[in-house]
Design a protein around this nucleic acid. Structure first.
Lengths: 155, 155
DNA sequence: ACCCCTGAGTTCATCAACCGAACCTAGAGC
DNA sequence: GCTCTAGGTTCGGTTGATGAACTCAGGGGT
């Protein structure tokens, strides 16, 4: 495996997992993408214990993935809700990739539990790999991963 | 949030995370995609403790994401190596999604640590959302997630 | 003025997961 | 029959997760 021997210390996969890879974090983001913003709702839909949820929300806010904003329901005092930032919205492909794999390999019913549609045209949305020449990349086997820059320094 | 109130129990995101969402699992798969197959190498490149690695490899094999195959290095006894199955190869988009987000938001150098190229044509490979009409979907905001089938039963 | 309700947490005791170091094991070569 | 190596297993200590109980700040009802 000498070819695969390069410096993983600043690997982007590991880095991203360091931010959103803890238990519950990605489920919190799933709820955010479904438009759920309040602590109690997130707690109910994810099933995360409150203490963990408090911690995960704080981490996500700290990293600029969610932002904590005041809101006021009628006849209630001011509280805070959690909303996706642009940085957070950019995690959408991660969720979709997880979802599509689950739809394919963990299917229980005849139809996946959630469908995605393009708001502009109403047709189904999918994630796909393609190269700059415009070719569809069907399998991971057709892709070569090449370490470059600072990653080349050591093993 | 009554609109977002549907049954998450068979959510594909949660399901997939149940399979590959534990600590180290996705880093093990990163190594698999880099062609690393042997226990000691995976251990060295991921930094996972051996006991945890043993457990994660067993789980991944159990779920048919990796398969354990005998090999024999010259002048050594027969051992086993871990290789991606088709089911495992299909997790590639998850890794790429994590990588692309990290490249964008956690960059330290001037160039990402790993580049992806299409073997057939040599140009860069990217992950993209698009709809069946062929439109590129730029942002998560342009996508509507619609619960369907069994997910509609309860909240 | 007082009490109760709600959403958003905090605290605490218990239990599971993770960690690194040390140890074990089966075969190959000497 | 000794040693080396890859691929584990075992162990004690530490960290993280869990669910139940408790707190806190306001608003509304009486």
């Amino acid at each position: 495996m000498s070819e695969a021997s390069w410096d993983r210390s600043q690997c982007s996969v590991a880095g991203t997992l360091g931010v959103v890879g803890e238990k519950w974090s990605l489920l919190v983001l799933r709820e955010a993408f479904h438009g759920v913003r309040r602590f109690a709702d997130i707690q109910r839909f994810t099933g995360a214990p409150k203490a963990v949820l408090t911690d995960r929300l704080a981490t996500l806010v700290e990293h600029g993935i969610l932002r904590r904003e005041p809101y006021q329901a009628e006849g209630a005092r001011q509280r805070h809700e959690y909303r996706l930032t642009t940085k957070g919205l950019d995690l959408f492909p991660v969720l979709i990739a997880l979802m599509e794999w689950g739809d394919k390999y963990l299917a229980t019913g005849d139809v996946p539990p959630v469908a995605l549609e393009h708001r502009d045209c109403g047709s189904a949305v999918h994630l796909g790999l393609r190269c700059d020449e415009g070719h569809e990349v069907g399998s991971a086997r057709q892709v070569r991963a090449i370490p470059q820059g600072a990653a080349l320094s050591a093993g």
